[in-house]
Design a protein around this nucleic acid. Structure first.
Length: 208
DNA sequence: TCCCCGATTAACT
DNA sequence: GTTAATCGGGGAG
């Protein structure tokens, strides 16, 4: 399963966000356990975008957004959740794609255990709920702050994104979730998701 | 140094 | 539909 190369990420961020749908995020743990999930929901963030962490220029936290394309950017929010992003466009351009949901593929049992460990009641989770939402993606895949700055296109990186040939049939867009800023930031259709996929976050609708 | 609030989630009523 | 949990980034002073 070929790992995505730097050139894949070195393109306009909304295009990369769209094309990441159907790709596979892989994390090989220190003990060799292999976790993976198919990307079913993404969002694009750009430097001229009030909703983006890069809007006011680089800081120590956001430095990976300005790094080479393909670098992981992981941030902590709401005092309890991590969110995983991939740097896009040329180096020094503060842009990234947020991975918002995965369909678990490999190591599903382990991923489910990571998620259940942080819940108050220990009930089994449906596969579609294991990595549904950006905080849950990191919990299930065991991704934390230590992964911010990882250069995923490098051959030896235990965290990377690969292409297994799958191509999503129906892609939809919407405004991004939970963002603040001007009207453009709040309305620009830079959220991308696979239509009717059960692992996509947000309230489910009947027919889309 | 202080202080507000967030690219969220789950457990409530 | 509402709200608690929980902490650090970064703008304000």
């Amino acid at each position: 399963m070929p790992r995505l190369t730097r050139t894949f990420f070195a393109r306009p961020t909304p295009l990369v966000a769209r094309e990441l749908l159907g790709k596979v995020l892989v994390h090989i743990l220190a003990d060799g356990t292999r976790l993976s999930g198919r990307i079913v929901e993404t969002e694009a963030y750009r430097p001229d975008d009030q909703a983006s962490h890069s809007f006011r220029g680089p800081t120590p936290r956001t430095a990976p957004m300005f790094g080479p394309p393909g670098v992981a950017y992981v941030y902590f929010t709401y005092g309890m959740h991590y969110c995983f992003n991939v740097s896009t466009e040329a180096e020094a351009i503060g842009a990234a794609v947020l991975i918002r949901a995965l369909e678990p593929l490999e190591g599903v049992q382990v991923m489910e255990q990571f998620r259940r460990a942080s819940l108050r009641q220990d009930k089994p989770l449906r596969p579609a709920d294991v990595a549904r939402g950006p905080g849950n993606v990191c919990k299930a895949m065991s991704i934390g702050r230590e992964h911010s700055g990882y250069d995923m296109p490098q051959r030896n990186s235990p965290l990377f994104i690969a292409d297994d040939g799958f191509r999503p049939a129906l892609i939809r867009t919407s405004a991004r979730v939970g963002v603040s800023g001007d009207e453009l930031a709040k309305s620009v259709p830079w959220r991308f998701y696979i239509q009717n996929h059960p692992a996509v976050s947000g309230r489910r609708r009947r027919a889309e």
